[in-house]
Design a protein around this nucleic acid. Structure first.
Lengths: 233, 233
DNA sequence: CTCGTTTTGTTCTCGACTTCACAAACTCCT
DNA sequence: AGGAGTTTGTGAAGTCGAGAACAAAACGAG
C-alpha cells in the first residue's frame, strides 16, 4: 500500500556490510546534518582556516560537538586525535559521501513566483546542482526565459529528462496539479522529488519525496508562540 | 552557550500538568504533523465530507492510522468510537490547538526573488497568517509595493513590529545579512523566526528559529540518489 | 434489551537517535 | 625519551517516537 515515502524506504538495511565492500549504513538523521557540516566547512575554508576541532565545527554548524563527532564517525575516521580535522580534506570527504563532487542535473516544474525564485537561486551550481530545464504548462510562460534558461512546455519533460539523465525534479506548481506533475516525473525516470506544493504525493516505492511547506513551518511556530503567550499570562 | 535552538527549548516540561489546568505536553513530532492533518481536514470539508474515520483521514494526510489516532489523543478525545471524527469539529479543535483560529501578524524581511514569492503566497491568509510588513534594506526597493503591500526600509522594522504586535518574522535575505536581521528582529520583540537564508542563526533562549533550506533538501535527495545508483550498479 | 460490528483511545514493545563519559591516539615540551 | 595536555572515536545509557495490538465505547439489528 505504500503509506507515504517522506522518509526513504530503506530496504531492511541489508544487515550492514554484506555484498561489495563497506556500504556503511548512515542514519537518516545524520544524513540530514551532513549538508550543514559541509556548508560550515566551506565557510571556514573561505576564512582561510585550515584546521578545526569538533568543538569549533560544531559551533559553526549549530550542533553539539558529541553529535558532530558521532555523525562523522559514520563516514570513517577522518580526524586526528589531539589535533582536529583538516578542513579541506573533511570537506571533500563529506561532499563525496553526499554525492555532490559532481553536479546533478535538475528540472523545475512550475515557473510562477516560487519557480522564478528557485530558478534564480545562485546556490544551485555552487552546491552540486545544475538546472537543465524549466517547465510550465501555461503557454504564455513558454516565451520567457528565466536566469538564461528558456521556459519550455510541460510536455517536454520526458525528452529533457532523458537527454540530460535527470534524476531529481522540483515541483513548484499549485497543489491541485502536484500529483499529476509527480506522476509525469516518475514516468520520465525521475526518482527524487522536492515538493513545494502543499499536497501529499503518492509515488511508487523507490522514489523519494521531500516536502518543503511554508504554511506548516509557520503553523509550528504559531503553536509554540501561542504556548509562550499562555505561559506568561 | 546556547547550542542552537532549532528545536524548541522546552523548559524541562514542567513535569506535565502542574500549574493552571491541563497544559498537555504535545510531543514535537506530533506538533509537526498537526498542520498536515488540518490541511487534510480542510480538503475533506471542501469535498462536503462531514465525517471520517482515522483510516480515511490518515490516508488523506499520508500517515499511518495508528499514528494519527495517537497524535489526536494528545489533544483530547474528539472522536466517537464506532463512528469516526466530525470533520468540522476536529478541524476547529486542531486549529485552536495550533493557535490559528485568528490571524498572526507576520513581517517579511528581504524582498528579493524569494521575498517576492513569499509576499505573493496566497496561503498566508487562509492558513492563519497576515503579512503586515515587507522590509528591505535596499532603498531602490522601497518604492515598489508587492501584493498591495508597500516595501519599507529595514529601519522601520521596530515600529511596524510594535504597531501590529508582530511575534513572527520571516528572513529572506542573503546568508551574510541573516544574523543582523535576526538580531534586529529579536530587538523588535519578535520571538519566532522562519529562516530561509542558508546560515546558522544565534538567538537568545526563548526565541524559536525554524530553517528552510533548499540546498540541504536537494543534497539529502542527492545522497539517496547516489546510493540507488551504487546499489543497482 | 441484547448481541455483533465498527472504530476510537491507549498500552506495550521495539527501534532509532541523543548525550555522556572515557579510553585511545596524537602533539608538544622538557 | 617520557610525560602532560588535547582531542578524537565509540561504548553504554537514557530519551523519544513508531507501530502493533487490544480493551472500551458507541451504534444498529433483531
Amino acid at each position: 500500500m505504500a503509506p507515504h515515502p517522506r522518509r526513504v524506504t530503506r530496504e531492511r538495511a541489508v544487515t550492514a556490510r554484506s555484498t561489495t565492500e563497506g556500504a556503511r549504513e548512515i542514519p537518516e538523521a545524520t544524513v540530514a546534518r551532513l549538508p550543514v557540516y559541509l556548508r560550515a566547512l566551506v565557510s571556514l575554508a573561505d576564512q582561510q582556516i585550515a584546521t578545526c576541532s569538533s568543538e569549533e565545527l560544531a559551533a559553526a554548524a549549530g550542533v553539539n560537538s558529541a553529535k558532530l563527532r558521532k555523525d562523522l564517525s559514520y563516514l570513517g575516521s577522518y580526524g586526528t586525535r589531539g589535533v582536529g580535522y583538516d578542513v579541506d580534506y573533511l570537506r571533500y570527504q563529506i561532499a563525496r559521501e553526499i554525492g555532490v563532487t559532481q553536479d546533478w542535473p535538475v528540472v523545475i516544474v512550475g515557473i510562477g513566483n516560487l519557480g522564478h525564485a528557485l530558478a534564480n537561486f545562485s546556490g544551485f551550481r555552487s552546491r552540486g546542482f545544475r538546472v537543465v530545464g524549466l517547465l510550465d504548462a501555461d503557454p504564455a510562460r513558454n516565451e520567457e526565459s528565466v536566469a538564461g534558461i528558456p521556459v519550455r512546455p510541460f510536455s517536454d519533460l520526458e525528452s529533457i529528462a532523458h537527454e540530460h539523465g535527470v534524476a531529481i525534479g522540483v515541483i513548484a506548481v499549485p497543489a491541485a496539479a502536484a500529483q499529476d506533475v509527480a506522476d509525469a516525473m516518475v514516468a520520465a525516470g525521475i526518482t527524487s522529488i522536492l515538493n513545494f506544493a502543499p499536497a501529499v504525493l503518492t509515488v511508487p516505492a523507490g522514489v523519494d519525496v521531500r516536502k518543503v511547506d511554508l504554511s506548516i513551518e509557520l503553523q509550528i511556530l504559531a503553536y509554540h508562540e501561542q504556548r509562550k503567550a499562555v505561559q506568561t499570562a
